[in-house]
Simulated assay, not measured.
Amino acid sequence: MISFFGFLLFGEGTLDDVLANFDTDLGIPFSAVLNDAVRLSYAAHLMLVFPVVFFPLRLNIDGLLFSKSKPLVMDNFRFASLTISLISVIFLGANFIPSIWDAFQFTGATAAVCIGFIFPAAIILRDRYNIATKGDKILSVFMIVVAVASNAVAIYSDAYALIKQNKTSRE
């Protein structure tokens, strides 16, 4: 919705980062007030959405790392340690990743491959009810190998482009 209304407001002059358009005078009455209102509403949106996204992240990481332990709500030390660790990683990522587009490149290279190829093939390999045939399992292993290889190429090309871009910007 932000992108859609940003395009309606700025037309062909819409920048990649829509919020960057609100750094200038919009040429309308109360332009500064509108700029501040948009920025404050976006900050409020982030503050309200973060806990909704962070809760399942913390719960899933706890389930992966401590699957045999008692529930997270019953262990205050583990809850606090996991929360502080995750927030620290998120804070460091937010401060040291130069551009959101870099993060999107690596997320797209990994998440899309996992969701589209690796997870479905892993489900077939796990096959609790013995529905999958031997051919299905061989195809699943092949699909995982190809997905991991293509994922490695995508991550390598993203990292190479990022390093090359940093070298050219320094020179």
Results as ranks from 00 to 15, higher is better:
Phe77Glu: 10
Asn166Ile: 02
Met143Glu: 05
Ser85Lys: 02
Leu82Ile: 06
Val148Met: 15
Ser88Arg: 02
Leu15Glu: 15
Leu15Gly: 05
Leu19His: 08
Asp23Trp: 04
Thr24Asp: 14
Ala147Met: 06
Ala132Gly: 05
Asn76Ser: 11
Asp25Val: 03
Lys134Phe: 11
Ala154Arg: 01
Ala149Val: 09
Ala37Trp: 10
Ala161Tyr: 11
Lys167Trp: 11
Val153Trp: 13
Thr107Glu: 11
Ser81Tyr: 14
Pro98Met: 01
Ile84Gln: 12
Phe91Gln: 09
Gly63Cys: 04
Asp25Phe: 05
Ala37Gln: 09
Tyr129Asn: 14
Ile138Thr: 10
Tyr129Gly: 03
Glu171Pro: 04
Ala152Ser: 12
Phe119Ala: 12
Asp16Cys: 03
Ala109Pro: 01
Ser67Pro: 04
Ser85Leu: 14
Leu125Met: 10
Pro56Trp: 06
Val141Gly: 07
Phe77Ala: 06
Val49Met: 13
Arg39Phe: 08
Phe66Asp: 00
Leu125Arg: 00
Ile90Trp: 07
Gly135Ser: 14
Phe10Ala: 02
Gln165Ile: 01
Ser69Pro: 00
Ala147Val: 02
Ile28His: 12
Val73Gln: 13
Phe91Leu: 15
Ser67Glu: 12
Leu19Gln: 11
Ile144Arg: 00
Arg58Glu: 09
Gly13Leu: 06
Ser69Glu: 05
Ser99Tyr: 06
Lys70Arg: 14
Phe5Cys: 05
Ile84Ala: 15
Lys164Ile: 04
Lys70Asn: 06
Val52Pro: 03
Leu86Phe: 05
Ile163Phe: 15
Leu40Gln: 09
Leu59Asp: 02
Glu171Asn: 15
Lys167Tyr: 13
Phe96Ser: 01
Ile115Gln: 11
Ala32Tyr: 11
Asp158Val: 04
Asp17Leu: 11
Thr107Tyr: 15
Val33Ser: 10
Asn130Ser: 13
Arg170Thr: 07
Ala112Lys: 11
Ser3His: 03
Gly135Leu: 09
Val49Ile: 15
Asp62Trp: 00
Asn130Cys: 07
Pro51Val: 02
Pro71Trp: 00
Ala44Asp: 12
Leu86Asn: 01
Phe30Trp: 08
Asp25Glu: 13
Lys167Arg: 13
Val38Leu: 11
Leu92Cys: 13
Asn60Glu: 12
Lys137Leu: 05
Ile90Ala: 14
Leu139Ala: 09
Val153Tyr: 15
Ser81His: 10
Ala154Pro: 04
Met74Glu: 12
Ile118Glu: 02
Val146Arg: 03
Thr83Met: 04
Val38Asn: 01
Ala32Glu: 15
Asp127His: 04
Phe50Thr: 10
Glu12His: 03
Trp101Ser: 10
Asn151Ala: 09
Leu34Phe: 12
Gly116Ile: 03
Gly93Lys: 02
Gly11Phe: 07
Asp25Thr: 03
Ala147Gln: 02
Thr168Ser: 12
Ile115Met: 13
Lys164Gly: 04
Thr110Lys: 00
Leu65Thr: 01
Ser99Asn: 13
Val153Asp: 05
Val89Met: 14
Thr133Ile: 04
Glu171Asp: 14
Leu125Asn: 01
Asn76Lys: 09
Val18Phe: 08
Ile100Phe: 11
Pro71Thr: 00
Ser85Asn: 10
Phe22Ala: 00
Ser157Thr: 07
Ala43Thr: 08
Val33Phe: 09
Phe104Arg: 07
Leu64Asp: 11
